[in-house]
């Protein structure tokens, strides 16, 4: 049994998820809560946003994000990988700065023009 807070809406229901009973969720007020609770325990994912080193632009850093959520457990490893990345201006918003980060199949994209 794991307790967590639903982020589906401002209500912030305290959910209890029973891993041994097919991730049954209690404490939720709506369907969204049940879905969130289940996913959060089976395969929690997050979009990672950070910056990478940038050369030749008006700033020394370029903000980036993963194009899709990646497994939560990989966040710190992804940070390490991205700390080695340098982009060179001009960079276009949406441009891929790193493909398939850590074999997740997810690209990392720039989130501004530089």
């Amino acid at each position: 049994m794991t307790e967590l807070t639903c982020i589906g809406c401002p209500l912030g229901c305290r959910l209890t998820v029973d891993e041994e009973n097919d991730y049954a969720v209690t404490g939720n007020s709506c369907k969204k809560g049940a879905e969130y609770g289940k996913n959060e325990l089976k395969n929690p994912t997050r979009v990672l946003t950070t910056t990478v080193n940038a050369e030749g632009g008006i700033h020394g850093r370029c903000p980036v994000r993963t194009e899709a959520p990646i497994p939560k457990a990989m966040l710190f490893d992804a940070m390490k990988v991205l700390s080695e990345v340098t982009v060179k201006a001009p960079v276009k918003c949406g441009e891929t700065v790193l493909e398939d980060i850590l074999g997740t199949g997810v690209n990392v994209i720039a989130t501004r023009d530089l």
């Binding site: 979009v47 946003t49 903000p63 994000r65 949406g94 989130t111 023009d113």
Partner: peptide, 21 residues
């Protein structure tokens, strides 16, 4: 630079710089 912007306006989750862009 975090995401969460634009869900109402653009129906997708953008970072701050993307929203401004």
């Amino acid at each position: 630079i975090h995401n969460g912007f634009g869900l109402h306006r653009f129906k997708e989750e953008l970072s701050g710089p993307e929203y401004a862009h």
